[in-house]
């Protein structure tokens, strides 16, 4: 079992700009990591439930009760720019 790992593609999805050198380095490093994890495939795992979470916990809930929100001036204090009480952005075109 071998996964094709394309660092250039993943970097593009993550909006990361990588130099050709970096791409080569990360490609090699990540392949090593993926190959290491794939060792588990050498075991016979038939009938074993996949682990869904790192903690052996389920059902952590909160009740549907309103708690106070943040003060609006604090919320907007770090906004580079604001339009009234909105966070102001450059004009954006809606993506699909």
């Amino acid at each position: 079992m071998s996964h094709t790992l394309d660092v250039a593609y993943v970097a593009e999805l993550a909006r990361l700009e990588l130099s050709p050198d970096e791409k080569r380095t990360f490609q090699l490093q990540l392949e090593t990591i993926v190959n290491y994890v794939e060792k588990i495939g050498e075991l016979d795992l038939a009938g074993i439930e996949p682990t869904l979470h790192g903690q052996a916990l389920v059902n952590v809930f909160r009740e549907d009760v309103v708690v106070p929100s943040l003060d609006r001036e604090c919320v907007l204090a770090n906004a580079p720019e604001r339009n009234g009480f909105e966070f102001k952005l450059p004009k954006i075109v809606e993506d699909a």
Partner: peptide, 13 residues
């Protein structure tokens, strides 16, 4: 919610 204006956009969370 993003509100689109003529020259910029605004976000309401």
């Amino acid at each position: 919610k993003i509100n689109h204006y003529a020259r910029f956009s605004g976000v309401d969370f």
